[in-house]
């Protein structure tokens, strides 16, 4: 069905999509945890800063954020010259895509984690406290394991959304699956429909794998008699 060139493009596209999704997933979860921790801080400025970050990233289009990060902020990043001729920025378009998408998904993750932490009953925290747990121990061994169980369903949704949003990296020419497919169907109009179908199937599969693994994780974390 496909020529080797096309096959190579599709495969490299899939691989880039997976890489993009993977790094964004990790980074956005880290941002979410750090942000949720900062929101519980006693410093007011820090709290309102996190709040501003969340509201900004939630209420502006991820695509425009991407363009802004890459084109507008990209011009301030220092460049380096590997061969003395080319001027390459330190952060590539893939790098900006990862940064921008992670911040976008991270804004949602902060809210999700905060809701999870708030869902842990005060009395359970008090029990840990009265057993002599330090603040960190209480968080590490009691609050976090419980909060993560509360968060998982919404985290699941957000991460699926993130994988879908990686397609928008197309806008800054990151050679992910959609980008590669579009180049194929421009070069070989006859391959349009099969490629389209393939893209569809691959994304559904990727999302499916993520859903499945998150659901398995959710099941493994289930505690008898806790929640539903």
């Amino acid at each position: 069905m496909y020529e080797p060139v096309q096959q190579g493009k599709i495969l490299s596209g899939i691989w880039m999509t997976i890489k993009l999704s993977f790094f964004c997933l990790i980074l956005s979860v880290v941002i979410g945890i750090v942000g949720a921790f900062a929101q519980g801080s006693k410093i007011r400025i820090l709290r309102s800063f996190v709040q501003g970050y969340i509201q900004f990233f939630r209420n502006t289009p991820p695509y425009v954020q991407l363009l802004f990060f890459y084109f507008a902020l990209g011009q301030f990043t220092p460049t380096y010259s590997p061969d003395g001729w080319l001027e390459l920025p330190i952060i590539s378009n893939v790098g900006w895509a990862i940064i921008s998408l992670s911040f976008f998904a991270g804004a949602f993750n902060v809210e999700i984690f905060r809701a999870g932490i708030e869902a842990v009953a005060d009395s359970t925290k008090e029990a840990a406290e009265s057993l002599g747990f330090s603040r960190f121990q209480t968080f590490r061994y009691v609050i976090f394991p419980l909060a993560i169980r509360v968060c998982l369903p919404s985290l699941n949704n957000n991460l699926i959304n993130l994988v879908k949003t990686t397609t928008q990296a197309f806008g800054i020419a990151v050679p992910e699956l959609l980008y590669q497919s579009v180049t194929i169907w421009n070069d070989y109009p006859s391959a349009q429909y099969p490629t389209m179908l393939l893209v569809f199937v691959v994304y559904i599969l990727l999302v499916g794998v993520l859903v499945l693994s998150m659901n398995t994780w959710e099941k493994n974390l289930r505690i008898p008699g806790y929640g539903q």
Binding site: S130, G132, F133, V142
Partner: peptide, 30 residues
């Protein structure tokens, strides 16, 4: 808190740990 033990109205066990794990958590961690 090492000297004073407290039991609450709502038990407040850690729901994600078994009975045994609930008991050994504080001695091993604290």
């Amino acid at each position: 808190r090492k000297r004073v033990g407290m039991v609450f109205q709502q038990y407040n066990l850690f729901p994600h740990k078994t009975a045994l794990e609930n008991i050994i958590m504080a001695p091993t961690l604290v």
